[in-house]
Amino acid sequence: MDFPMTIDDIRADFALLDDWEDRYRYVIELGRGLPPLPEELRTEANKVRGCASQVWLATKPLVNGGAGKANRMAMQGTSDALIVQGLIAVLFAIYEDKTLDEIVRTDAQGIFAELGLSEHLTQQRSNGLASMVKRIHMDAEMMLAA
């Protein structure tokens, strides 16, 4: 699988998959395609609270243009659960190439619902997804305020 995948690529692929089992396997494959998270980024500060599995998300500000102020962010992440690793890949696709303002305003959970993923996640996974989205939004807000 080529990365970065866009959310439009994922939507198109989902449209070709008829049943949930195929979509589930596809999400797992997306997760397997993520680059590995360097061991030095698996810190307590990067650990996402509220997830049933182990999840680490590392973000850093990116400066695009001559303003000198960050307007985008780079994201890396991993999980010890295959399906959660796939959810991280979908999140990264949702936020790919967005400005910090756009990240804060993006309804990632709405996109998960549109894809039909939300209805197939356990309550624990849904809570973990909400925690990951909240963390990404908080990091973007902190970078905007800096």
Rank of each mutant, 00 (worst) to 15 (best):
A93D: 10
L62T: 10
R49W: 04
M73W: 02
D101M: 00
Q76K: 11
C51I: 02
L37D: 01
A145D: 12
K134S: 15
L100V: 01
D22K: 15
I111S: 01
D101P: 04
I111H: 00
R135I: 06
A45T: 11
T106I: 00
R49E: 15
E40I: 01
E21T: 01
P61F: 10
L57R: 04
V27P: 04
Q54K: 14
E39G: 04
A93E: 12
R42S: 05
I83D: 06
P61D: 06
R23D: 04
E102F: 00
A58L: 01
E141F: 01
L91T: 11
R49T: 12
L41Q: 14
K60R: 14
L16R: 09
L34V: 02
N71I: 02
D97C: 05
S131P: 08
G110W: 03
N64M: 07
M75P: 02
D101I: 06
E114H: 09
I10L: 07
L30W: 09
D9W: 03
I28K: 08
L87C: 11
L87W: 07
V84K: 05
P4R: 03
A81G: 13
D107C: 01
A45M: 05
P35K: 08
N127R: 13
D18Q: 03
D13K: 14
L144I: 15
G77S: 07
M5K: 15
L82N: 12
K98R: 15
G66D: 12
Q54C: 09
Y26N: 06
L91N: 05
T122D: 13
D139L: 03
I136C: 10
G77T: 05
K134A: 14
